[in-house]
Design a protein around this nucleic acid. Structure first.
Length: 562
RNA sequence: UGCCGAAUGGUGUAACGGUAGCACGAGUGACUCUGACUCACUUUGUCUAGGUUCGAAUCCUAGUUCGGCAACCA
């Protein structure tokens, strides 16, 4: 109920149209579809469309709404089964389910062909002998009308025979096309006799060699929608001027219903490159380690990086659905990621760049005390774990400064700091090597400070640590933004905008022993550092590799860098 | 020189003729065994010009700016 109310109070213009259509009785329910072409991997931009289409279906589930997954596989030159499976996995990961409604445009080739014959019979389509260059020339320009093809007035019988021969394979690629007969002078170029079918002697990933003519997107899409009973066909803004053609086809064909196409603005996060072509270049030229590299904007890349699906859904919700061509600040995405991970990720202590601390007044060499640490302060069900403290620990090199600035709450000579979940220690002595590098800190601990603050003084800082003798060592990959500029697509060459520090590899980081058993895909907060996820590609049992998803906010670091 | 669409703080998004609100960001402070989280406060906005109206972000007119469009891609 509360959820229902919430969705009522904040509806975007598309959801309003859908709700109105159901309320008015125009449609009994809503049927939407997500129609990817299986020619590449899904990226974060697709997530918006997925959340919209599947989201609407969920919100109207009480009236039987559904969302289809339809592969728009009308161009065998570009499509592969590999992509079909990857796309399915990504949608499921995002948290959506098409149930039994999995379809392919190629399922409709027979019907689409029959309707093309219908159009020819009605004198609304014709076979054209012009080649691609000639068609372009005849089309005219944005400001000048086109001119009609000399083949435009062929009679129905001839067109029918020719189209049949196209189908039979009598012609080579590009020799002939089927075109709708609309208006070569139309202001909208899409209505200047658009191509409906082209000859492509190519093996299709599903229909094999059965066909050598394939419908174009414009011809196939609306009709596929109609066949499936789609009520609202949602697509991005660049298809706006295709809508008149969409409507023309659906109005001139005996389709079971006329879906309504509605366009919305794409998701465009800053610092991301989303074009399939560019993504492909990044992979092919080995700037990254495959489609699922954590630096990629693909859903599989974000997954490997540790972005929770709930965070991506949350981003889509805050971004909303409008016709305004907006740019989304990555900060919105990162906030959504941190918000989700803060609630769900267990805390662990990991020292990236260690410095040894010896506790000089620790009872004796063999003495060990178990420290109890909260797994997740935001989740009371997450429990606790124990960490063994003995006389030697590692702390972060950056948590010690010999000559600290004001308001430095960490360790420095003579200063006191708390070992998180443990005792307070005071730095008594700094040991350096011959080069003058600090190699060890000799500290004393205050036995009265376990679980309570000292009464006579204030210890402000708490630092993470790892027991020196049983630290687990593992590698960590620090990911940063992949590009240095907000809009890499606007660069002459995206390669120039790559962030050279997008990946920093650390080896032998000191970790709590319990991290040895971390499972691929598991997310953690390394305290005072960031959120990390166990890599699902290169981790092996007992030897996890950690990817940094996003750092924690750092107001101290920000202040220091000013 | 054409057609289509869109304009609300730095960013995203509400307000459906009646108090311009929310989130992010930024800043300040409080709290803190994570300089995290949380909390409080602050900052900044209706593209322009006319018009209709008691009243306009909202309706009308004109302009400006931005985006998209000339694959046998989707």
């Amino acid at each position: 109920m509360a959820k229902q109310h919430e969705s009522n109070s904040k509806k975007d213009f598309i959801r309003e149209i859908v709700a109105d259509d159901i309320l008015s009785g125009k449609h009994e329910t809503a049927v939407t579809r997500f129609p990817p072409e299986p020619n590449g991997y899904l990226h974060i931009g697709h997530a918006k469309s997925i959340c919209l289409n599947f989201g609407i279906a969920q919100e109207h589930s009480n009236s039987g709404a559904r969302c289809h997954l339809r592969f728009d596989d009308t161009n065998p030159a570009k499509e592969e089964t590999e992509y079909v499976e990857a796309i399915k996995e990504d949608i499921r990961w995002l948290g959506f389910d098409w149930k039994e409604h999995l379809y392919f445009a190629s399922d409709y080739f027979d019907q689409l062909h029959a309707w093309a014959v219908h159009l020819i019979s009605e004198g609304k389509a014709y076979v054209d002998d012009l080649n691609a260059a000639e068609i372009r020339e005849y089309r005219g320009s944005l400001t000048e009308p086109g001119k009609e093809s000399p083949y435009r007035e062929r009679d129905v019988e001839e067109n029918l025979a020719l189209f049949e021969r196209m189908k039979l394979g009598d012609f080579t690629d590009g020799e002939k096309v089927l075109r709708a007969k609309i208006d070569m002078a139309h202001a909208n170029l899409n209505l200047r006799d658009p191509v409906l079918y082209r000859i492509l002697h190519k093996k299709h990933h599903r229909t094999g060699d059965l066909w050598c003519i394939y419908p174009t997107y414009d011809y196939a899409h609306g009709q596929s929608d109609a066949i499936e009973g789609i009520t609202h066909s949602l697509c991005t803004l660049e298809f706006e001027h295709h809508r008149p053609l969409y409507d023309w086809l659906v109005n001139n064909l005996p389709v079971p219903l006329r879906p309504r196409q509605i366009e919305f603005a794409k998701l465009r996060p800053t610092f991301f490159l989303m074009s399939k072509r560019r993504l492909l270049e990044m992979v092919r030229e080995e700037y990254v380690d495959g489609w699922d590299d954590p630096r990629m904007a693909t859903l599989s890349g974000l997954r490997r990086r540790g972005y929770p699906p709930a965070a991506i859904r949350s981003l889509c919700k805050t971004v909303g659905v409008t016709k305004f061509n907006s740019v989304t600040d990555v900060a919105l995405l990162e906030h959504a990621v941190r918000e989700e991970l803060n609630k769900t990720a267990q805390r662990r202590m990991v020292v990236m760049e260690p410095i040894k601390v010896s506790i000089t007044n620790w009872p004796s060499d063999g003495h060990v005390e178990m420290m109890s640490a909260v797994n997740n302060p935001e989740d009371s069900n997450a429990g606790r774990r124990e960490i063994a403290l003995s006389g030697e620990v590692f702390i972060e090199r950056s948590d010690f400064m010999e000559d600290p600035p004001k308001k430095y709450y960490r360790l420095s000579p003579g200063a006191e700091v708390r070992l998180r979940y443990s005792y307070c220690i005071r730095c008594e002595e700094v040991i350096k090597n011959d080069e003058g590098d600090v190699v060890e800190l000799r500290c004393t601990y205050d036995p009265e400070t376990l679980g309570k603050n000292p009464v006579d003084r204030k210890v402000r800082g708490a630092v993470h640590w790892v027991p020196a003798n049983e630290a687990f060592e593992a590698d960590v990959r620090l990911y940063d933004r992949t590009f240095l500029v907000e809009d890499p697509a606007a660069e002459d060459d995206w390669r120039d905008a790559l962030n050279p520090d997008a990946l920093t590899e650390l080896t032998g980081c000191k970790m709590e022993p319990i991290l040895k058993n971390a499972l691929p895909g598991e997310c953690f907060q390394f305290e005072r550092n960031g959120y990390f996820c166990v890599d699902s590609k290169y981790s092996v049992p007992g030897k996890p590799l950690f990817n940094r998803t996003v750092p924690l906010r750092d107001s101290w670091g920000k202040k220091q860098s000013k």
